[in-house]
Amino acid sequence: MSDTLTTARILTGRGIRLSRRNPDAVITSMMLPVMLMLIFVYFFGGAIDTGTRYVTYVVPGVLLLCAGFGSASTAVSVSEDMKGGIIDRFRSLDVGGTPILAGHVGASVARNLLATVLVFGVAFLIGFRPTATPLGWLAAIGLLVAFITAISWLSAAAGLLARTPEAAGGFTFLMMFLPYPSSAFVPIDTMPGWLHGFAEHQPVTPVIESLRGLLLDQPVGDTPWIALGWCAGLLALAVTASESLFRLRTR
């Protein structure tokens, strides 16, 4: 186990170095959520009634959108490794699939945390004022890290499933789409009735509602536990699928 963790840590460093060699993708994954936040706040915020300042309402959704953009690049990185032949070299060094994929996921989490800091910084500049307690901040950060980790593993599985890096890039579409039919940008009760069931019971909504409540020091009930349940379920599914797909691709 210690050898696996050490190898995963080393490969996480490799993933971060690879990110530095592709600054365009990193900058895009960081700046696009910020731009969308500014567009929603300044272009549409005045027309959307959420019962509070719109920037206060929208920031949790933008954080998840940011996490989605950042993690989607993991699919491309994994697909490039599978196509480029580096996996054969790793296997000749007796490096298994789990630490290889964990390295990609670790790099994704690191990139996403940096992007999250950027989103928070811009949000503060345009008027976001959280009132979370220290415990609330810890809970919000922990939940966000859990969500990022889960979707990063899901992205790694998508990279193994795709046959080309270009096809793996299509995973970005799902990450872009999922926050929209949720409570990220507008209250669910303003949506058409036929959409309520999906919007209320998809994985993104409880995460957003939990982050919003924790950051604003509002009652959250059992919503964070539901959100963690979704994260744990997605993580278990993604890790299992990734290991099976890796064996299929390298046998």
Results as ranks from 00 to 15, higher is better:
M1Q: 12
L5C: 06
L5A: 15
A8E: 02
L11H: 12
T12C: 07
R14D: 11
R20D: 07
N22Y: 05
N22T: 15
M30L: 14
M30G: 12
M31K: 09
I39Q: 06
I39L: 13
Y42G: 08
G45I: 06
A47V: 08
G51Y: 10
T56G: 13
V59S: 04
G61A: 08
V62I: 15
L64D: 02
C66T: 14
G68C: 07
A72L: 02
A75T: 04
V78T: 04
D81H: 08
G85C: 03
D88Y: 02
F90C: 14
F90M: 14
S92C: 09
V95I: 15
G97C: 08
I100K: 03
L101R: 10
H104F: 01
V105W: 01
A107Y: 01
A107K: 05
S108E: 10
V109L: 14
V109P: 06
L113G: 14
L113I: 06
V117S: 06
L118K: 03
G121I: 11
G121D: 12
I126V: 15
I126Y: 03
R129I: 07
T131V: 09
T131A: 13
A132N: 09
L138Q: 06
A140E: 07
I141D: 05
L144M: 15
A146N: 10
A150F: 01
I151N: 03
S155N: 03
A158R: 00
G159A: 11
L160H: 02
P165H: 02
A168V: 00
L174T: 14
L174S: 10
S182H: 00
S183M: 05
F185T: 04
G197H: 14
V204Q: 01
P206V: 04
E209Q: 13
L215K: 08
D217G: 12
Q218C: 05
G221Q: 09
G221A: 08
D222S: 14
T223N: 06
W225R: 11
I226C: 07
W230F: 13
A232C: 05
G233Q: 08
L234G: 15
A238W: 00
T240V: 14
A241G: 09
S242F: 02
E243M: 14
L245V: 07
L245G: 03
R249I: 00
R251E: 08
